[in-house]
C-alpha cells in the first residue's frame, strides 16, 4: 500500500502552515460549536440568560422520556431508511444502465449528476412546487387515481414529499460511485462468467453486486449521515416539520427546540445525541464494514 512516492518536507513547519487555514476553519466552525453544544447540554440557562447552572444528565434523561423525541427518532429512522434505499437503488439502476451504454454515456452521466449541484433548499422548493396541492402538476395527475394530495394537511404525504426531495438530490451522488464501481469490475470477469453460462442478470447478481459491496457499504453510511444532517434545509423549505410534527426529524427538532423554542439545553443534548449516532456509524464503517467487505 505505502509504496507510493512520498513527499518529504525539509522545513518542519511548512506542513502546519499549509494546514493552518483549514484547521482554523474547522476549529472555529465545527470543533468549537460542537464543544459548546456538549457544554450547554449539561447546563440550564435562566430565561433571561443571566445565569447558568450545571444540571448533569438531566436534559438527556428528559429526552429519553419525551414521547415527542422518541417519535421523532422513529420518524427519522423511517426517513433515513427510505431515502437511503430509494436513492441507492435508483443510483445503482442508473449506473447499470449507463454502464451498459456504449454511446452517449457521457451525456447521460452529465445530466444525471446535475441534481447533486442543486442546493438542498432549492431541491426542497422544487418538489414543493411540483407537489403543491393547488398548482402542482403531480397532485393533478394523482387526482386521476383518486388520490387527493395535500402535504399541508396529510402527514404521510408530507413525509413522502421530503423523502422524494431528499432522495432525488442524493441519487446523483450514489450513481457516480456505483458507476465508478461497476466500471472498475474487470471486463474479463464478465466474459468468463458469460462463458460459464451466466446470463446478464445473473452476472449482475453473482459478480458485479458482490464486487460492489465496498461501494455499497460506503454509500450506505454516507447516505444515512446525509439524511440525518444535510436534510435540514429540505424540511425547512417545504414542511417546517409539520403537519402535526409528522416530518419533524431529529435534525429539524434540534433547530425547532433550540432556535424557535429557545430550550437551548435540550436542543444541545439532542445535537450531542445526533453527533454520537454519526460517530457510531463512522466507527462501524471503519471498524467492521471495511474489513468485512474485503475479498
Amino acid at each position: 500500500m505505502m509504496d507510493t512516492k512520498r513527499t518529504t518536507f525539509q522545513n518542519k513547519w511548512l506542513p502546519y502552515v499549509l494546514l493552518a487555514p483549514q484547521l482554523f476553519i474547522t476549529l472555529i466552525f465545527f470543533i468549537w460549536p460542537a464543544g459548546q453544544a456538549v457544554k450547554s447540554s449539561f447546563e440550564r440557562e435562566d430565561p433571561f440568560g443571566f445565569s447558568t447552572v450545571f444540571v448533569g444528565l438531566q436534559h438527556y434523561a428528559r429526552l429519553m422520556q419525551d414521547p415527542n423525541y422518541l417519535d421523532s427518532f422513529l420518524r427519522t429512522a423511517v426517513f433515513a431508511v427510505a431515502v437511503t434505499v430509494i436513492s441507492m437503488l435508483l443510483g445503482l439502476l442508473f449506473a447499470v444502465a449507463v454502464d451498459r451504454l456504449m454511446r452517449s454515456a457521457r451525456v447521460y452521466t452529465t445530466l444525471l449528476v446535475w441534481p447533486y449541484a442543486v442546493a438542498p433548499v432549492v431541491a426542497g422548493v422544487l418538489w414543493f412546487f411540483l407537489f403543491n396541492s393547488s398548482t402542482g402538476i403531480l397532485p393533478y395527475y394523482l387526482s386521476f387515481f383518486g388520490i387527493k394530495w395535500d402535504h399541508n394537511l396529510n402527514g404521510t404525504h408530507a413525509m413522502i414529499l421530503i423523502i422524494i426531495a431528499a432522495a432525488w438530490k442524493q441519487i446523483s451522488y450514489n450513481f457516480l460511485f456505483f458507476l465508478a464501481g461497476l466500471q472498475s469490475v474487470p471486463h474479463t470477469l464478465m466474459e468468463a462468467a458469460a462463458i460459464d453460462g451466466s446470463g446478464p442478470i445473473k452476472r449482475f447478481f453473482d459478480i458485479s453486486l458482490p464486487l460492489l459491496s465496498p461501494t455499497t457499504f460506503f454509500l450506505f453510511i454516507v447516505n444515512v449521515n446525509y439524511t440525518m444532517f444535510d436534510t435540514f434545509s429540505i424540511v425547512d423549505a417545504t414542511t417546517n416539520g409539520g403537519p402535526a410534527q409528522s416530518t419533524n426529524i431529529l435534525v429539524y427538532k434540534v433547530y425547532q427546540d433550540g432556535y424557535l423554542g429557545l430550550n437551548l439545553g435540550s436542543s444541545s443534548a439532542q445535537s450531542v445525541l445526533l453527533m454520537l449516532i454519526v460517530i457510531v456509524l463512522i466507527f462501524v464503517q471503519f471498524r467492521f464494514v471495511e474489513r468485512r467487505v474485503q475479498y
Partner: peptide
C-alpha cells in the same frame, strides 16, 4: 455459453 467452449484468460479472470 452455448458454444461448448472454455477459455483461459491472460489475467486469469478468477472471481
Amino acid at each position: 455459453a452455448d458454444r461448448d467452449i472454455a477459455m483461459v484468460f491472460q489475467n486469469y479472470a478468477l472471481y
